[in-house]
Design a protein around this nucleic acid. Structure first.
Length: 133
RNA sequence: GAGAUCCGCGAGACGAUCGCCGGCAGCCUUCGGGUUGCGGGAGGGAAAGUCCGGGCUCCACAGGGCAGGAUGGUCGCUAACGGCGACCGGGGGCGACCCCAGGGAAAGUGCCACAGAGACAAACCGCCUCGCCAGCUCCCUCGGGAGCCCGAGGUAAGGCUGAAAAGGUGAGGUAAGAGCUCACCGGGCCCUUUGGUGACAUCGGGCCGUCAAGGUAAACCCCAUCCGGAGCAAGAUCGAACAGGGGUGGUCUCCCUCGGGAGGCCGCGGGUGGCCCGCCCGUUAUGCCCCGGGUAUGAUCGCUUGAGCCUGCUGGCAACGGCAGGCCUAGAGGAAUGAUCGUCCACGCCAGAACCCGGCUUAACGCGGGUCUCGGAA
RNA sequence: UCGGGGAUCGUCUAAUGGCAGGACGACGGGUUCUGGCUCCGUUAAUCUAGGUUCGACUCCUAGUCCCCGAA
């Protein structure tokens, strides 16, 4: 995963397209079922090998986190953190980030740090993309 | 200065960079989109809760009956309202001011625990009259008398209870009493004067002591007024995919080219979105109903110009209305606002549009002003 | 978006508008050598704020939270 890292246009820039996001329910459930997990104080991250060569992210922020303002801010900060750090994250994964209750009180710096750490740890526990089950 | 009360205002500002969602224009395109430029993009007092009312869209729209729901002083405002304004009446507060589901209790029904004699109709203790066989007590001039008890009755003044007990004070009256009678106060009904659109206020008079007499209608209920149903996942257009199976009755009349056609009745299905009657539609079919199967989490429209916002003038006590000019101000579809930096105010509450408005209620920071009360100083 | 239901001791549940009751639990005590079973006693609640009423878990209004249903 070293040669084609900078080749794919989605990874080279710091934009965030819809193709880089998980949007549908089956995508979330599949990632959570197959992927490795890592828990942080404010986040839970699932990482699973994907079928596409780039990395996608999906966010889950439930009502337990807070009101709509708090939930929107958490989602925006997590998207921002993913966008800014795409270059340093492993390629070809689907990520599901679930905000825990403490995410509403965390600032951007905390969320960014936890996201990066959790992604790396969760990736190590991800199964290989074989035809399992 | 403190406390109270009412009203109003604001919702961090400016700039830069990287991203995100729409719009317009140019270019490229494999028609999916890409790219460049310009411009817009979280408002708000609550976007909230979804408690009311409307617009809009679709369905329904002979009629009748019974339900059901909502509202409840008057007049006005409004598209409408259960909202708002002004006023009336009642209540609270020293006051500024605040609160009130504020029609009907002689249409009927129900309930009023405990306590208390008694909860709306009686009479427990009382008070009083009469009677007095027997019994008890006392007095005695030894004949009898008085009282208690008992019996028959009259009372509702007093008593206790309670949230609530047939208006209050005084006098007369009586065996004792009572609006039983009278005076005053209070109350009810009717007529009347004046003011007001009206609720109502007010002047004068008459009648009523049967002043017939509690509360509760956010108990049932009665009266008056209003209410068709659903909701933008409404709804419209275009498209993709799949697999089909079953059911669609009876009878009568007429016409007839004997294939069929027209009509009536029963039945069945659907509509009338609470129910019933009734009515309407279908039952001749490329339709309808049932079972099963398939699907794009599809595209476009609806989707933001609207009871719109600002300014000025103007009518009205006000809510609100009229006229003129100016402005265009988010429109997504897993759903766009974040991160970083600089300067300043001296640190920012509640909180995020999803068809759109008018209200109500709830959440909550800061600032200003009016008024009232108390205290102090001059 | 629309509709329905609910909230009572720590838990599960009762209660015409009139003293909030029961079970389990907890605590204390008795019984037992100890524990359990068992017996006795105690503890402890009407989601919040107003209103109607003499009186509200109950009726009305507003709010908070939870559950269920339909498209």
């Amino acid at each position: 995963m070293t040669d084609e890292r900078d080749d794919h246009p989605f990874t080279r820039d710091e934009r965030l397209r819809k193709e880089e996001r998980l949007l549908r329910r089956p995508e979330f459930t599949a990632t959570q079922r197959r992927g490795g997990r890592h828990v942080m104080p404010a986040l839970v991250v699932y990482a699973a090998h994907a079928e596409q060569p780039w990395t996608r992210i999906g966010l889950t922020v439930s009502r337990k986190v807070g009101g709509s303002v708090v939930r929107n801010v958490v989602k925006r900060r997590l998207r921002e953190a993913f966008r800014r750090n795409k270059r340093d994250l492993p390629l070809g994964f689907d990520l599901v980030v679930i905000a825990r209750v403490g995410a509403g009180d965390a600032d951007y710096e905390t969320l960014e740090r936890e996201l990066l750490e959790a992604c790396c740890n969760a990736r190590k526990r991800a199964r290989l993309p074989k035809r399992g089950e």
